[in-house]
Amino acid sequence: MGIVLDNLSKIEALPGGGIALATSDELINWARTSSVWPLTFGLACCAIEMMAAYASRFDFERMGVFPRPTPRQADVMFVAGTVAKKMADPIIRIYKQMPEPKFVIAMGGCANCGGPFYDSYAVVKGVDKIIPVDVYLPGCPPRPEALMYAVIKLQEKMRKMTVKGGHGATPLQGTGSRKLT
């Protein structure tokens, strides 16, 4: 967590700190929901739909979704496609490289549960076996509108976050998602 969010919850002890925190929650959540920066990262055919969502017919940028090439500057990872076991380690590594608060959208049947490769020797049955997932998006592949709906659902989740008690980040703040194996 950043220096600001780590120390922001200490305001609560001050007189009137609760109100200040509630107000700052509004501002922080507005900023977070308005600028969801995903990682430029695709695994299979779902990535093509993800690209279509950025392009002119659907235009993700209307919602402030702006792809970043490096995980250090990304907020959300679209796991777009089949997660092969060989790719599982790089995905965990990229996830660990993202700064808190970070979110994951499992896009498509393969990322949710293995999809048509449920019976395969080489596919991870759902990306939630290796990293925590915030939004599951079904479809094979989901249309770009569906991906936008997933981002809207993620924004709804972000709006419920609060800095009170240090819970400014992902729901895994307590356990620390960085300590994941």
């Binding site: 092969a84 076991k85 060989k86 599982a88 380690d89 020797y121 080489a122």
Partner: peptide, 16 residues
């Protein structure tokens, strides 16, 4: 080259 490094056996063999 394609499967993960700790893969046991060779998957396209019929007795895999």
């Amino acid at each position: 080259i394609l499967t993960q490094d700790d893969q046991q056996g060779h998957p396209l063999r019929k007795d895999y």
